[in-house]
Nucleic acid binder design. Sequence first.
DNA 1: ACGAGTATTATGGCACACCGTAATATGAGT
DNA 2: ACTCATATTACGGTGTGCCATAATACTCGT
Lengths: 231, 231
Amino acid sequence: MNADLRETAIRVERPAKTLRELALEKVRDAIVDGYFKPGERLVERDLCAQLGVSRTIVREVLRHLESEGLVASLPNKGPIVARLDLEEAKQIYEIRGALEGMAARLCAERRDPAIVAALDKSLRGIRECYAARDMPGVLNQTSAFYQTLFTSVGRHVAWGVVNLLTVRINHLRSMTIKTKNRDVEGPAQMELIVEAIRKGDGEAACRAALDHVARAAAIAETLLAAQQAGG
Amino acid sequence: MNADLRETAIRVERPAKTLRELALEKVRDAIVDGYFKPGERLVERDLCAQLGVSRTIVREVLRHLESEGLVASLPNKGPIVARLDLEEAKQIYEIRGALEGMAARLCAERRDPAIVAALDKSLRGIRECYAARDMPGVLNQTSAFYQTLFTSVGRHVAWGVVNLLTVRINHLRSMTIKTKNRDVEGPAQMELIVEAIRKGDGEAACRAALDHVARAAAIAETLLAAQQAGG
DNA sequence: ACGAGTATTATGGCACACCGTAATATGAGT
DNA sequence: ACTCATATTACGGTGTGCCATAATACTCGT
């Protein structure tokens, strides 16, 4: 019967996802985008008011973000936005290097032109976003590039790990891509990855991926050091 | 029949850390140890009764375990114990290989006798536990071995990732170490890692670590395949 | 001005109540 | 007796008020 069809017409913007998931994304974005600053306290009942949801939801969201490493909980104080220290950031870049190198090698050994085509497409997208000064677009396309690298060889778990770690250094990523010359240097390094994969040279692909991450890490380290000194 | 037994078996004791942390560990252990079987539904109100805590806690714990990958949530059905499929397990072993190889390489390059001594100590512990048929001990000592590998070169984040992934394949680990000859083969492979580190040969250490994980993965794959076939 | 006692604030935790949905049981009509 | 429709139940999703406790702010008496 069309009963539910009729109901959907007047339905009150009933989100497909649960409130919890929506709230989770809101808060995560708020932290990642810097709306909530590192070290800032996240008061449950304040969040309830801001999000327009109940404490139940807020608490579950905070717990979730805690397990993602975006939120830390001080004993007898409550949750705060996690601080990112230089050492942790370096380790995250290092892990990304290990996993992205592995994925690049696997892509190369697969010798599938479709993979190369997909990577090329993302790479073009990155260059276009850079040209248009669309920095969020650059991040998205970069994520798409690496997502292809992992999922085209079926490495969904590794992609999940990389994603989990990446949100923690997101603001570093935003700063890194705005660095002078990064708009040509970054895509050039990714081009090397794609080329190695095109040639089926796993070793070179792995090395190129490592180089790219290492460079990003170096830039991030400089930024973070300067930020801690000057800020 | 054993309703009482089931209810009291994993009940939390109040003191010490927050109830939430205690409950989290209880439920995680219950899943890891197979007290809750894969695919089994985790009914919130039942868990409240079994753990002796409120729904608030139970829900936060379930959320946490969900983000750890130990629990999955079916839409409009609720949480169940996550099933582990062969493909996922293989990927987890692969990631462990990448990270443990990296850590082993770093240990070798550090050329610190204290690291070798600590690894040797864990290795001896493993052999002793094998000799005493103390299988939980074997797992603990093996964890200690790898913890040393990571944390002695300061790679706490990577160790966290490995830990996170390892709980998901814990029952495979338990089965793997009970395999015929694993009591001599496993320690022998770990000995190779230690030897390479002692010699300061990063490349060999990395390879040895990869070999060890690869062997464990192969055993696990056989077991899992047999298990799925046999039922 | 200082210190003790008190009020406020915030988290941790609990109990309950309500809704929607899915599964199951029940019952009425053929 | 079988089937279909309806009632009931089970359970997650969500909201809310309340209590205990710890930390912090405040106030008052000296």
